[in-house]
Amino acid sequence: MIASLGWRLLVAVPVLLLATLVLFVVLRVLPADVAAMALAPGATEAEIAAMRVVLGLDGLLPVQYVIWLGQMLSGEWGLSAQMGVPVARLVGTALPATLELAALAGVVCGVLGFSGGLLLFALRREGGQREGRAALAETGTTLMMAVPALLWALLLVLVFALGWPVAPVGGRLAPGLAWPPGTGFLLLDALAAGDLAVFGSALGHLVLPAVALGLGFAPPVMRVLGAALAEAYRAPFIDQARLRGLSGAQVLWGQALPLAAVPALAALGRQFVLLLGGVAVVEAVCGYPGLGRLLVEAVRAADLPVLQVAGLAFAVVAVLAQAVVEGVCRGLAPRVRA
């Protein structure tokens, strides 16, 4: 387990380096005028020319890449072209907010995915005359998959924030509450300060976007778990466990689920990466000030300094999450195809 995790994290380093190359190509090679993107709108020709030199756009592409990578790695991220604020500060406040949201959404996604998968499997196992019900449940997950997180977010906000206001949206904290000092992870900071009012309010602001994301991305996990359980039950070791006198529950929880959970966990890891993308939209709908909203604003304003750092931050989170999940899965069951 430790070895596979360590190996997978080691592999994540070159992957991230290659990802920076992708980012560089997408943002610095493809666009028509990079220098204009790096400046506030309405910059003069002379300013743009000066920016060309600063960005090293007159050099060879590989040289440009090395210079740019150096800047990214050393934290010289510059000022936002749009707001004139250091990019580091913008990302520094938005990233913890998004991580909190993504983590909570991942938990919701996992809980929904695993319970849904067990339900799917239970319906399928009853078999016989109730086969229609399993097919119906299967189709239900397909239909659920067809509801994008955007629609879930709109629906939830409409019902639970506007129609019947039980959960707040907009910001991370109710107005009037004091921001506890600390890391920027509001839930952790509130707990550390022992401020339950802040904790409750922060959690309340997270509920709707997290549930929207969870609902939007859980169905594939359900289906993978359902299918993996069905596959496990076809294997002779389940039969042999029954023949040793284990009860149905012991076989499910002790034998089949630990094995079937591995591909489901891998699916959850992949869904988590996708969910990070969904964050961008759901944050916009719920008015949650996270990295996704920052990225959307930056795209809208063609704000290159923010774009590249926000994009890179997403990549780092995604690659690390994926590496951890894969490492754990490989450690749990070396031969199971995840």
């Binding site: 992957v15 991230l16 290659l18 990802a19 992708v22 980012l23 997408v26 943002l27 493809l30 666009p31 990466v273 996708l274 969910l275 990070l276 993308g277 969904g278 961008a280 939209v281 990225l295 959307v296 930056a298 795209v299 063609a302 774009l307 994009g311 997403f314 990549a315 995604a318 690659v319 994926q322």
Partner: peptide, 15 residues
């Protein structure tokens, strides 16, 4: 795939 698809799409659109 280091970039979540939507993030990548946003970056490509920006590019």
């Amino acid at each position: 795939v280091a970039f979540p698809p939507v993030v990548l799409a946003l970056l490509l659109v920006a590019g």
